[in-house]
């Protein structure tokens, strides 16, 4: 683990120490021209942030909603029936999600919006929303089930409806567990490479809208790593992106720890 961190840090920082690229250029320039010694990664960073935010805004509430349903509303038989279905959704390989996005969603978006290719932020965002669902569902279900039954009884005994109880008591009481569910959903979304790469359009430009093609950190690595020559600025900047992803993952894990600690 430490070896992995150090090695990736070493590779990721070569861009700045060997190629002497200004880290600010890497982080904030939208112009990705590694051959011209100007590997601005802002497009990819924003691409990752946008698709993740999209997935979070759509998949987050949806996933928590299903988690609420499974823990509070579903008849026990239906809940046990849905568990394996959700596990299968986890098990479907990301390339198959990508393939579905490619063959089903992209044409649909092309026809319904007049977008040229159907590839872009919107398509990638929808695919990711579905992909983070199982994570968010099962973790939020667990979080809500962990809330003691006396909370629910206390609220119902005051004459609250089930929805009032869920909204005003159960969800706040499960806050830290729900935070963890959302953070791990973010982790899954920001780290997903292939499904996004297959539908985001892969062009290193800032997107002009939801329908415009762009790229993300992971997808750029997938797209260019195969052709990157060892030791070039391109090669180094791809490793810098990987290192950045690693740092984000670590930050998210620290976030999880914080959320868990605050609750206890």
């Amino acid at each position: 683990m430490a070896a992995l961190m150090l090695y990736l840090a070493y590779m990721g920082l070569q861009l700045f120490f060997i190629d002497h690229v200004n880290p600010l250029v890497f982080l904030f320039s939208p112009n990705f021209s590694p051959d011209a010694h100007h590997p601005g990664a802002l497009v990819f960073i924003l691409g990752s942030v946008f698709v993740t935010l999209f997935a979070l805004c759509v998949g987050g509430p949806f996933g928590v909603g299903v988690g609420v349903f499974l823990s509070q509303i579903a008849p026990p038989k239906l809940a046990t029936l849905m568990k394996p279905a959700i596990e299968i959704l986890v098990g479907i390989p990301s390339v198959v999600y990508g393939w579905l996005g490619l063959t089903l969603l992209a044409p649909l978006i092309r026809h319904s919006t007049g977008s040229l290719t159907g590839f872009g932020l919107l398509t990638a965002g929808i695919v990711l929303s579905i992909m983070i669902l199982p994570t968010v569902i099962s973790l939020s279900e667990d979080a809500l089930r962990a809330v003691h039954i006396s909370m629910k009884e206390g609220s119902m005994a005051l004459g609250a409806t089930r929805w009032q109880t869920i909204w005003s008591v159960m969800l706040p009481a499960a806050r830290s567990g729900l935070t963890v569910a959302v953070i791990l959903g973010i982790a899954r979304a920001i780290g997903e490479a292939l499904a996004v790469q297959m539908v985001i359009g892969n062009s290193a430009v800032l997107p002009k809208g939801l329908l415009a093609p762009t790229a993300a950190l992971t997808t750029e690595i997938v797209t260019d790593m195969g052709s990157a020559q060892e030791g070039t600025v391109l090669y180094h900047s791809l490793f810098s992106m990987a290192f950045l992803l690693l740092l984000i993952a670590m930050a998210l894990i620290l976030g999880v720890r914080l959320a868990v600690r605050r609750s206890s």
Binding site: S150, M151, S155, A157, G159, A160, T161
Partner: peptide, 17 residues
């Protein structure tokens, strides 16, 4: 729900939210 509004309940273990 309206019944529980008129008939309140206190439980064995204190269960403040």
């Amino acid at each position: 729900v309206t019944i529980r509004h008129r008939i309140g309940m206190v439980f064995q273990r204190p269960n403040p939210f």
